[in-house]
Design a protein around this nucleic acid. Structure first.
Length: 279
DNA sequence: CCGGTCACCTGAGTGC
DNA sequence: TGCACTCAGGTGACCG
């Protein structure tokens, strides 16, 4: 499900729910989603306090402290397609399916981890493992961390087609299928365009549109097309502003052509053949 | 390096 | 109702 705007929304909601709170217990109902094993990660987390919650691309990173000034544990979460966090107050009845883990807090309240397709995960890492993880991930900057000129510079040397490149988290982190299709439409760039054929001006425009779309999407708390939800169960509203994503067969709001769907890099790809010409 | 395919899972939607 | 089939917001492994 979630791309940058959805993960950012979840992270902001997590901050108000769990920052500064101490973990009383961890229950795991599906062992394969946690690392190390359920026993060990429960022991690592129990009694620790959540000091920070941050987004790195589409990852959620919790810093946990037990005592002393340095973090003892990093909890890395990737929601993949259908992962969700839900907040449950003490005593509330839980009827949700696919809840694979529950983090309980001192003073009450539980954070539920739910994931229909079971692709997502929660990994507990010590500081050394966290460093190695960062290196091995080699995440690119997210679109807000660089300006248009830097973006154009990174693009200049790259081979391959623009859409798969924008989905590559080592090149740029945070974008997924929805926002890539929307940004390419807004910048009038065909998804198959060779990256190196984009002029500086068009690369600058692409970055501008990416940032604009992501900013608007964050303001509207992301896109809910099927099962994305925030902590309270509330969905986002940006899906109403999608111009091409899953709108094939509809008329392009700019030129009146029919929106088309094709497959690029194995992903469903939506674009307007009138507005988005191949370079 | 690049691209294609599959695998990981469950469910929603469509057409017969 | 039921069955078969396609598709789904992500990524990593494997292969040519």
């Amino acid at each position: 499900m979630p791309e940058l705007p959805e993960v950012e929304t979840i992270v902001r909601e997590l901050r108000s729910a769990v920052l500064g709170r101490r973990i009383a217990y961890l229950r795991v109902y599906l062992n394969k989603i946690v690392r190390p094993g359920p026993r060990l990660i429960a022991r690592m987390m129990t009694g620790a306090e959540i000091k920070t919650v941050n987004r790195r691309g589409k990852f959620i990173v919790f810093e946990l402290f037990r005592d002393g000034p340095d973090p003892d544990l990093y909890l890395i979460v990737h929601l993949k397609m259908t992962g969700q966090f839900l907040w449950r107050d003490r005593g509330e009845k839980d009827r949700a399916k696919h809840v694979h883990a529950v983090i309980g807090f001192e003073g009450g309240g539980e954070l539920l981890y739910r994931d229909m397709r079971q692709f997502g995960y929660l990994h507990g890492l010590n500081p050394e493992e966290f460093k190695r993880w960062q290196k091995s991930q080699n995440l690119g900057p997210d679109p807000f961390q660089i300006d248009a000129r830097e973006f154009a510079g990174r693009l200049r040397s790259r081979k391959g087609r623009i859409k798969p490149l924008l989905l590559n988290q080592c090149f740029l982190s945070g974008l997924g299928n929805i926002y890539v299709d929307e940004a390419l439409f807004a910048a009038k760039i065909h998804p198959l365009t060779p990256a190196e054929s984009l002029s500086e001006a068009r690369a600058v425009e692409l970055h501008r549109q990416i940032v604009r779309i992501l900013s608007e999407a964050i303001e509207l708390r992301g896109s809910t097309t099927s099962n994305y939800r925030g902590l309270s169960g509330r969905g986002g509203e940006f899906q109403h502003r999608h111009r091409v994503y899953r709108r094939y067969g509809e008329t392009c709001p700019v030129c009146g052509c029919n929106i088309e769907r094709t497959v690029v890099g194995g992903r469903g790809t939506h674009f307007c053949p009138g507005c988005q010409m191949v370079e």
